[in-house]
Amino acid sequence: MKVKPVASVSVLIILAAAVLAIALGATGYTPSLELRPLAEFYLKHCLNPFKKEYWAASPEAVTSMLWDYRGLDTVYETTVFFLAIIGSVAVFRFAEAALTSYKEAEKGKPKAEEGLSLIVRVITRIVFVLIVALSAAIALHGHLTPGGGFQAGSIFAVAPLLAIAAFSRRFLEELGLTKNKCLAIRTTGLLAIALIALIPLAFVLMGFAGSFIIQNQPKPWALHPVFPGFPVNLGPIWLAGTLILFNIAEYLTVASGFTLLFILLALPEEFFRRLMGK
C-alpha cells in the first residue's frame, strides 16, 4: 500500500493536535477522581464484613455485580449467547452419519502433511497448554482477581482456534473435543447456572421464607427463617458463595460454545459440497 505524503502528514498533525488538545484539558479529566454514588455503594459493600446484609463476599466488585447484585442480567446474557450458538449449529446442521462417512473416506490419506511448519507446530503446542492453563486460572480466580467466566471462556476459545490453524481439525478430535461432546459440556454448564440460580428457591420449599432467585449471601432483614447462603470459604480457600460456581459454569458454557463453533467452521468445504450433492 502506498501512503501519500499529504495523508501521512495530516494524520500526524491530527494525532499531535488531539494529544495537545487533551493535554490542555479539552475533555476534562477523563477518569474522574470522584466516584459516583452507585460505584461507591458497590466498592464499599462488596467485601464489607461489618455490613453483611449487603455484601457479596468477594473483593472483586465487577464479578460481584455480574453474578450477585445484577445476576439476572448476566443470566440473560448467557441465554443470548446460548441462542447465538444454537443458531450457528442450526446453520451447520447435517446428519452425523454424513460426517462419519466423510471421515471414513479421509482415513486412507497420509497424515504427515497436515498443518503448518515444524516451528509453528512446536510453538503452538506450548502456547496451547499455556492458554488453557491461563483461562482456567482466570475462571477459578474470577471472584478474587479481574476476569471471570466469560473472559476465561473467550480466552480458552483462542486455543482451539490456534490448534485448527497450526495442525488441523483432527488434532481437536484426538483431544476428545468433538461436536457432540462440546454440545454436552455447554448444556451442562447452562444447566448448572440454572440450578445454582434456583437453589435459593428450593430453600423456600424447605421452609426458609426469605430467599430469592440468584441469591448469594443471607439477607438478615428478610422474612425468617433466613436462607443460610452459600459457603463463603472452605478452610483457607475463598469461595465467595455462588460466584465461583457461576464462574466455572459460565467458563464451561462459553469455552465449549466457541470451540463448537470453530469445529463446525473448520469442516472442509469439500464435505459440504459432497453433502449438497447427495
Partner: peptide, 25 residues
Amino acid sequence: LLAAPDILFAYIPIAVGIYTVLLLY
C-alpha cells in the same frame, strides 16, 4: 488505561483473536 481489566480480558481474545480469524475465514 481506563482501569477496566475485566473488559480487557474479554476484549483481547474476542476482538484480536476470534473476530480476526472469523474475518479471515
